[in-house]
Design a protein around this nucleic acid. Structure first.
Lengths: 200, 200
DNA sequence: GTGAAATTTGCCGATTAGGCATCTTTGCTC
DNA sequence: GAGCAAAGATGCCTAATCGGCAAATTTCAC
C-alpha cells in the first residue's frame, strides 16, 4: 500500500536530485553547477531532471519546501482540541528536530560555510521564497481546517510562519556567536504572538 | 542634482520595461511573451533588457518591488517620534494610494481578468516573492533605524509586512464581492497587531 | 571642450526550456 | 502469472534564454 512502489520511487528520485543539487552547489559553488551534472550525480537523465524541477534553484529549494509540507501534515495530525499556536510550535519542533540537530551533530565547518555561500545567491533566495508560496497553500488549508476560519486569517498565518522561517534561517546563518535554531524560532514566534510590539 | 540625468533615465527605462512586460503579459498571456517583445515594446535592445532584469518574471515583479522600496523610503521620512506601526500604516497608505485608487477608477474588467490570469502563473508568484526578498532589506534597514532594534526584530517586521502584502493581494484578486485594498490591508494589519489569535 | 566613467548594443557560444515520440516500468485484472 | 493500461524515463529537437566581451554612444566633472 502506502501509494505503492511508483510513488515511493518518485519521491526517492526527487529527493536524490534535490540532495545532489545541494551537495554540488555547496562543493563547487552555485554558478558552477549545470543541471546536467545534477542529473548525472543522481543517476537520471537530464530530461528527467526537468520533469521534476524547473531549474537547479528549484531543486535546491525543494529541501525547504518538503519541510514545510511536513509541517502542514504534522499540523493535521495533532489533536484538534490543541490550541492553534501550540500545535504550530509542536509541528515545527517535530519537523525541525530542534535540539537533536543542535546537540547531536555540531554542524560541520565546511558545510556551513558552503551553505552560507550558496544561500547568498539571490537566485536561490528567490527560488526558496517562490517555492514556499506553493507550500503555503498546504499550510493554509491545514490552518483553515483546524480553525474553521475563512478569509484572510488562514493564509496570513501560513505566510507569517513562512516569514518566521525565512528570518530565522537567515539569522542562523549570520549570527556570529552561533545560536540554536530552536532559540531563534521561539524568539520569532514569541514576537509574533505579541503582535510585534515596538521595542522600548 | 537629484543624481543627474543618468540615474533618471535609467529609472525611466526600468519602469518602461516593467510596464511593457505587464502590459504584454496581460494582453496575450504570460507564456506568449518573449523578452524580445518586451524590449521592442519599450524601445530598447534585447541585450539592454537583460542588463536590467534577469527575465520577464523579474520585470513584472519590479512593479511590486518598487512599491516596497517606496514604502521603505516613506518610512524613513515620517517623524521619528511616531510609533512604528502608525508610521508603517501611514507609509503603506501613502504608497498604495488607498481610497484614491478605489473610488477614483473602478478597475477595468479586462484588465483585472488579465492580471488575475497572469498572477496565477506560478513562475510569477515566485518571482514576486523572490524580488521581495531583496526589497525586504531596505525595509529591514528602515525599521532598524527607526526602532534601534537589532537581531530578529527588524527583519521579522519587514517580512511580515511582505506577508501581509502577499495575502492581501491574493485575496483582492479572489474576493468575489470585491473588497477594497484598504480594507483588506487594515484587516490584515489588525490581525497581526493582535498576534494572530485563533478565532473562537 | 575633453577625457573618464557609465550605458547601450550587437555578437556569440553555452545552457536552459519544454513539446513530442518511444521505450520501460508499475499496477491491476482475470 | 500473463497481459494490458497508465505512468514514468529518456532521447531528440528547436526555440529561447543567459551572460561575457568589446565597440559605439552618452553623460558627467573639471
Amino acid at each position: 500500500m502506502a501509494d505503492g512502489l511508483r510513488e515511493r520511487k518518485k519521491q526517492e528520485t526527487r529527493i536524490a536530485l534535490s540532495w545532489a543539487a545541494v551537495r554540488l552547489a555547496v562543493e563547487r559553488g552555485y554558478g558552477n553547477v549545470r543541471i546536467e551534472d545534477i542529473a548525472a550525480e543522481a543517476g537520471v537523465s537530464l530530461r528527467t531532471f526537468r520533469n521534476y524541477f524547473a531549474g537547479k534553484a528549484e531543486a535546491i529549494a525543494a529541501r525547504e519546501v518538503d519541510r514545510m509540507y511536513a509541517i502542514a501534515e504534522e499540523l493535521r495530525v495533532r489533536p484538534a482540541e490543541e490550541p492553534l499556536w501550540v500545535a504550530i510550535r509542536a509541528a515545527i519542533e517535530a519537523r525541525y528536530a530542534l535540539g537533536a540537530s543542535d546537540g547531536g551533530q555540531p554542524p560541520d565547518e565546511h558545510w556551513v560555510a558552503g551553505i552560507r555561500l550558496m544561500m547568498s545567491e539571490p537566485a536561490l533566495q528567490g527560488a526558496i521564497a517562490a517555492a514556499y508560496a506553493v507550500a503555503a497553500d498546504e499550510l493554509t488549508a491545514a490552518v483553515a481546517e483546524r480553525t474553521g476560519a475563512t478569509g484572510l486569517y488562514p493564509r496570513l498565518v501560513a505566510e507569517v510562519i513562512g516569514a518566521a522561517r525565512s528570518v530565522v534561517s537567515a539569522e542562523w546563518l549570520r549570527a556570529d556567536p552561533p545560536r540554536s535554531m530552536g532559540d531563534l524560532l521561539y524568539e520569532a514566534l514569541d514576537l509574533l504572538a505579541a503582535g510585534l510590539p515596538e521595542p522600548h
